[in-house]
Nucleic acid binder design. Sequence first.
DNA 1: ACTCGTGTTTGGTTGTTATCCAACAGTTCG
DNA 2: CGAACTGTTGGATAACAACCAAACACGAGT
Lengths: 148, 148
Amino acid sequence: MPPKLHLQLDERSGVPVYRQMMDQFKYYVAGGVLRPGDQIPSIRELASALQVNPTTVVKAYTELERSGLIEKRHGKGAFVAPNARAFTQLEQEEALRRSAKQLAVEATQMQMPAPKVITVVREELGALHSDRSGEDVPVKFAVVGGGA
Amino acid sequence: MPPKLHLQLDERSGVPVYRQMMDQFKYYVAGGVLRPGDQIPSIRELASALQVNPTTVVKAYTELERSGLIEKRHGKGAFVAPNARAFTQLEQEEALRRSAKQLAVEATQMQMPAPKVITVVREELGALHSDRSGEDVPVKFAVVGGGA
DNA sequence: ACTCGTGTTTGGTTGTTATCCAACAGTTCG
DNA sequence: CGAACTGTTGGATAACAACCAAACACGAGT
């Protein structure tokens, strides 16, 4: 029972596409949305859905497999590895801290007051939480361009 | 009177170094820390301080000049362009929204509750605000590795 | 067997990123 | 002038990212 995934690529971020895909699978596993044994999109399927080259997905999946997070099975598909485990709350915090730090650096350089930063973050969180469209739509994966 | 800058490179972010440098100069100008006419580090000086190749700084400066944010003057140095202006509060919010969105995506994928996200953001903001060491140190630019 | 969807592999092309080295040229000051 | 800064330019190398295309191999179903 693979859950609905919502992978989001930002072309203008400068971050390699395969890295973005890797990161987001990691987050899904870290948060327990994706659990051991769950099937994830096939290489061709994901490549098609995200409009990227299949070899790019291959690279992401290969790296994820090398790190032990997923398993590719010839002829069957790709699955979350049996021993892949969700992060503890502490680990999740540390994982999120990287992005939070980047945000903090930018905000500080712009001399933006903390309350305003918090407001923006709240808004973005809210935007995603309310974005539960596609929940019972017959689409497994939604591609959302960078939003800009 | 160029203010003290605190440029921070994260090698593991996947974002090209010259892009990181560009972004941070943009933020400093956006927030009014860097103002028109202010001198910014020379190419060689910045390259040395951040331990990157001078040509990498050249690329960043050239792009920034092309976008009208700075000016390079042969033999004299690099300066914030006369017509470079700080962002309005609304523009600052929009600029920060990009990073905030990325943070929100990750948090959501990890199913992290909003309050916990806010807490982490607050902590990182606080860490930078208290990090005023090097304020009156005879160093113009501090290099801070990705922090991890 | 056949077919379809799966992962696998190979080779090539294109463009980007970043490095290193070297030389040239403008500015300022002693 | 000469020294010490500055930006400018060119060539070369290496690694990486992403694309494209074609073929090969495994699994499950008909």
